[in-house]
Structures are given as structure tokens and as C-alpha cells.
Design a protein around this nucleic acid. Structure first.
Lengths: 250, 250
DNA sequence: ACAGAAATGAACACAAACGAACAAGTATCC
DNA sequence: GGATACTTGTTCGTTTGTGTTCATTTCTGT
């Protein structure tokens, strides 16, 4: 097998699957990973593929929603901390709801390998978990291109039909006085539907959003079972949330 | 074997395979590698081949390996032809259903830029059209990881709620005697639901699938409005399909 | 947060392929 | 018949592609 044929084959596979892995290719093409990596490096130099750690993807796919969700989100360290706390609450066999948004997204990485069922309306979550050990269920309906999620009536309606053990919700603002608030009514209706379907509601909310009210208030604090936030939150404030009846993790 | 004949033979092989190896040619043509290399050098000087280490490739392969790699996938040329015909049937403003499967997928590339609404249960379709000019609507439900699509009860039920102008369906088998057949009941139920919701049903089916029955027969030919296939289909056979009441494009 | 695993790239080694130069064989022309 | 042009094969030093080792980076799981 010469290198031209190999690259040809490589591009074929890539075109069929959208992504390839170095180890797989090395096995299929009867060669070593280093050779595949060199091939990919050449193709990448020409812009025909985009390298990833462990493989490559089509250039089009590289701009995908997952990358979009991953890149340069504000407060990433806090969000990862929050998601680790959240992941610790999950038991194998659980059915979860994962909300769309940058706060909840890092949770996907932490649960890829576990035996779970995840209901979601978020495209990045869907793409991140598709092909993993997790069984994914999608809330259908119209795709909101800006938010990379399904936000319509149908999505909310469908969510109500599922019974989930734990819902992990994001929110735009949260305050003791006015409860949960959002920048969009659509997001709010999805959150409400998911909360209604869940045995326990976890609100994932970094400390910068505490005591912030956004334009649309849609639920009282009592909707939430557990507030998951980061150590940046003042202890006194968290104590007040606890007094209001919430379990608090930080 | 003289010089001219050798070069001719060489170009023939190159045309068939897209690439050649010096060592192989030397063996086949009962000569030594240096001779082949000199031949290739001459052809390369004229631009008829592109030299590589150990062999040569067609110029068009060297120029656009991606396009060439695509052609290598099964029946892809036919599928692209079919999708071009299908795309010509689409009017701006239409709402479409696009089925999952390799036959219908190339349609996405052809409509990315158009003002359309597309309902689908296919993840690759969703992926390809997310972020394009097309408004995407997803049939929700459980994700079938192997088929990269939603195939459950919920998906079928949701599809019935949408009214679409044109449904573009794929199928595993099709015959005059036994109608449409599939390899999976789930796929069949999605196809039926989409067909029921559509004003007009286009069946995209390359000629290799004509008069092939698969294990699960799920609908009569009358479900289909228009059969879109490729020129590889025998004219006499297409005439019979026309007689059976289908519009046929090839 | 931390430790272990996997992937990566650089440096080196080896084999295959390469081109240049030269030698040998064949056809053509005077 | 001998000179010439042309093609083919051989030798040898060089280049190119591939595989191995190892330190480093990146990812993943507890």
C-alpha cells in the first residue's frame, strides 16, 4: 500500500464517517500510527482535514456545535468545577436531562463512558454523546440555530412525556428574591418542562450569576432541589440559599 | 514490448486504478524499474501523470483527492446524480422531509444555501444543515447509534404532526411485485410516518436496489409519487414502474 | 486536583526508490 | 560495414518514506 492510496483510503473513510481515529486507521491500513499521523499532517497542511487529538475530522465538522460550545466560554474553570460536582451526584443507570448552555455542557465529557440515559434538547450535548456509552434521547422540534438547541413547543411537550431521575439545568440569573430568570421565554419553557419531568432538579449556576435577575422570571427557587455552584460564591450567601430550602454544593 | 505499447498499457492501468506502482509495472511488463521510471518521467513531463515516490497517480487525483475519494464510496456517483434530480424538484419555501441513509444524504450539500425548512430524523442531515440557510426541524426520540438517527415511537409520532410538501425517502429494496422493503422495522415506520405527512413522496433509490426485496415489506408502490433513480436502470423496467402509476426520473 | 494512560513529535535507523553516469544491445542511415 | 542515434540494464551515491525509541504534551478517570 503506497502513500497515495493510503491517503485516498483515508479520505474515503473520513468522508463516510465524518471523523477518523489514528489507531483505527493504522489497523485498517496495516501500518503504524506514526505513518497515519504523518499522512494526516500533510492533509491538514493542505486544509483537507483538521487534526484532532487521536484522529482527524472533516474541515466542515471542525466548526461543529461542540467546538462552538467548548471554545472560550467565560468562567470555564468554574463551570468545570460545577460539572464535576454534578457528575458525582449521578448513579449508573440514571436517566438524566441535560439542559443546553455552556454551564451544563462540560458535564458530557465526564459521563461519556457511563451507563446512563440522557435526554436533551442541546445539539452540542447530542453530538458529544452520540456514539458514546450513553443512550441519548433527543427532544425534537425546531432547531434554534443561535442557541444550538431545540426550543419549540414540540420540544417542551415531548420533554413532559419523559420521566427522568435528575435534571441538570442552566439558568441565566438566580436570586433569593425573584427566583430563576432567563433571557428567553423559550429557554424558560424548556427548563420548566424538564423540571416538571424530573424527580430531582439540579441547578448548575456559576457564582457570577448569583443574585442576578434577567428579564424573564419564570420560576420560584422552590423548583430547584440542589444548587451547584463554585467556591467563588460568598459563604454567607450560600447559607441564605440553604435557609431557603435548597441543598447547596460548592 | 516496445516503448509506445508500454506507455499505453501504463496509462490504461493508471486510468483503471487511479494510481500505479513502479515495482508492479516492472513485473507486469517484464522489465526493470528504471525503465518504468523513465516512462513515467516522460509522461509526467507531458502532464499525463503525476509522479509519486514509488509510482504515479492521475493528475486529477493529485489535484483533488477529496473529490476522488468520494467517488470511491459505493454507488456514490449514482447517488449524487439522484440527488441532483431530486434537488431540481425543490422550490424555495418548501418544507421537506429528508430520510436518513446514504442515498438521501448528498441532497444536503445541494440545498444548504436555499430558503427551505427541512424535517429529519437523521443526525448527519441535522449536522450538515445546522448553521446553514435551511431551518431544521428534528424528529426527537431515542438515538439509534448505529444508524445515526432517531428511530423510535416518539420520532414517528412526531413526524405525523408535521405537514411537509415533499418527502425524500430512502429504501433498502423496491420491487414491482412486493413494493417497498427495509432491513429494519424501525426505519420502515419512520418512512411510513413521513410519507403520511407528505403531499408528495419521492423515493430516492439507486438502480442497484431495483427489484430487490429485503426482509421487511412495509408499503405498496402506491405510497410513492415519484421514483428517482439513475441511468443504470433498464428502460424497460422503468417503463413498468411508470405503468404501475409512478412518475419516474432517471 | 492529581495520577496514569494515550497520543504526539523529534531524533535516529533502515529499507526502498530515486537519478546520474556508464555499459550494452538494437535499429537505422550513409 | 561502420558510425550514429536510441533504448534498456547496471552500479552507486543520494533522497524519500516508514518504523522504533523516548521525552513531552494532552486527555481521562478517580
Amino acid at each position: 500500500m503506497n502513500f497515495q492510496l493510503r491517503k485516498q483510503h483515508l479520505l474515503t473513510i473520513l468522508d463516510e464517517h465524518g471523523s477518523v481515529e489514528v489507531a483505527d486507521l493504522a489497523r485498517q491500513l496495516q501500518t503504524t500510527p506514526i505513518t497515519i499521523r504523518r499522512d494526516l499532517a500533510q492533509l491538514a497542511a493542505k486544509g483537507l482535514v483538521v487534526r484532532t487529538h487521536g484522529g482527524a475530522v472533516l474541515p466542515r465538522v471542525a466548526k461543529d456545535p461542540v467546538a462552538f460550545a467548548r471554545k472560550a466560554t467565560a468562567h470555564l474553570a468554574q463551570k468545570e468545577h460545577i460539572c464535576r460536582l454534578a457528575a458525582a451526584q449521578i448513579t449508573d443507570g440514571d436517566t438524566l436531562f441535560i439542559d443546553c448552555g455552556s454551564t451544563t455542557f462540560p458535564l458530557c465529557r465526564l459521563i461519556r463512558h457511563r451507563k446512563l440515559r440522557v435526554v436533551t434538547n442541546s445539539l452540542p450535548v447530542l453530538f458529544e454523546l452520540a456514539g458514546s456509552a450513553v443512550q441519548v434521547v433527543v427532544a425534537g422540534g425546531e432547531v434554534d440555530a443561535e442557541r444550538q438547541a431545540m426550543h419549540g413547543l414540540v420540544a417542551a411537550e415531548q420533554l413532559r412525556r419523559y420521566q427522568v431521575d435528575k435534571a441538570f439545568l442552566g439558568v441565566d440569573g438566580l436570586s433569593l428574591g425573584r427566583g430563576l430568570s432567563a433571557n428567553s421565554e423559550h429557554e424558560a419553557s424548556i427548563s420548566l418542562a424538564a423540571a416538571a419531568a424530573a424527580r430531582h432538579v439540579y441547578l448548575l449556576c456559576d457564582s457570577s450569576k448569583l443574585e442576578q435577575d434577567k428579564y424573564f422570571q419564570f420560576a420560584p427557587l422552590s423548583l430547584v432541589g440542589t444548587l451547584v455552584t463554585d467556591p467563588g460564591a460568598p459563604a454567607a450567601l450560600l447559607a441564605q440559599y440553604r435557609k431557603a430550602g435548597l441543598q447547596v454544593l460548592a
